[in-house]
């Protein structure tokens, strides 16, 4: 299936700039070597590889990015930044993209949806970190 991407639109540029600023990462430095994707331990679960996430961010492809499963799969384990020759922290990019939705009140995880068994079993450290990442 092919899809036409609108590049160079004003909105796309604005979105790219916004994510660059919010993440604080020099996204434009990425030259698509793919080290991050090969280092990522959870990439098999992702629809966009970490390197693609950065490329799409350069292009400001908002819809593709915020609808990507990838931003909810990233475990913020920092393998990507350890390997990146340009020192780009893709975990920060993913967080900046997640915040795009979380700040619009679109929670990914709702704490009240956890069953009583899960609440009894899962320790605080896991619940707190999960909510920090996945709820507003």
């Amino acid at each position: 299936m092919s899809k036409t991407l609108k590049l160079d639109s004003e909105d796309a540029k604005k979105f790219a700039a916004k994510i660059q600023e919010r993440s604080g990462e020099p996204i434009d430095m990425c030259f698509q070597c793919g080290e991050c994707s090969s280092a990522c331990p959870v990439s098999p679960e992702m629809d966009l590889m970490p390197s693609t996430l950065v490329r799409f961010t350069q292009l400001g492809l908002k819809d593709e990015l915020i609808n990507a499963k990838t931003i909810w799969v990233c475990a913020s384990c920092f393998h990507c930044v350890a390997r990146c020759p340009k020192g780009i922290d893709v975990a920060k990019v993913a967080e900046a993209l997640r915040q795009e939705l979380l700040r619009k009140k679109l929670d990914y995880v709702e704490v009240r949806d956890l069953s009583m068994e899960e609440r009894q079993e899962i320790p605080q450290i896991a619940i707190i970190s999960n909510l920090r990442k996945f709820s507003r």
Binding site: S76, V109, A126, I127, S129, N130, R132
Partner: peptide, 14 residues
């Protein structure tokens, strides 16, 4: 390698 961290809440299979 990451243990899966906070995904233990929403993706225990991972």
């Amino acid at each position: 390698k990451c243990c899966g961290s906070y995904h233990t809440v929403d993706k225990p299979n991972l």
